[in-house]
Amino acid sequence: MEKTVAPAAMVKFGTTQRKDAWWAAPTATVAVLTLFVIYSMVRAFENNYYIAGPYLSPFYSPLLLFDWWPLSPAFLILWAPAGFRFTCYYYRKAYYRAYAAHPFACAVGEPHRDYQGETKLFLFQNLHRFFLYAAVVVLFFLWHDVIKAFSFGGHFGMGFGTLVLLVNTVLLSGYTFSCHSFRHFVGGNVDCFSCAKAGRVRFKLWKGVSSINEHHMLWAWTSLFAVMAADLYVRLVACGAIHDLRIF
């Protein structure tokens, strides 16, 4: 016979009866997100090597150069995608778990007892839809950059960088348009599709967005890696560390 405490007394951080590797996913999330934030900050402050031939780094797109702005032009842009990701329903889950440990994993004791959820200061999470609007505008410029990346000295062509930017923008589009707020916007706010104006169209749109929304986490991670890879590729080509492979 083994004596144990009553279930109600399980309150310390990490206290659990789970026998699986419950710590693995949040630990990986901390590692990857921290790496991404450090990389993006370094690149934003670097303020260099963001153009290579027809390629423009997504961290600097659209390129806004003003005399009155003393810092890197990346900061005029990055607030939009950063705010979009920070208030994203998927990333909220990821960082509430990984950084705040609220909870670190399901059915695992938490470190602090005070908890307000998404009330008070965290009401700002309701701004997610406005960051979505801004992210759609940025996305428009990223597609413009992809089209430009097919132009080499006025001639149609394709380099490996074109593919990198294309894949990045496709993944960012998937991430943006699988957003829960977008899903709500196109039809989620309708109660009666058969009675609403353009209800059938909105129902089809809602169904379509719902199908990609199911994979929002996948879009979130793949687009995060893609945007970092695209920026890194442009940087390496721009500083001469590698040469762009011209496909045709």
């Binding site: 909220r92 609220h102 909870p103 399901c106 959820g117 998404e118």
Partner: peptide, 15 residues
């Protein structure tokens, strides 16, 4: 209902 207290960490969905 306290909806704002939910921080959407999806444990409910998992179980």
């Amino acid at each position: 209902s306290g909806l704002g207290l939910c921080n959407i960490t999806k444990c409910c969905t998992e179980v």
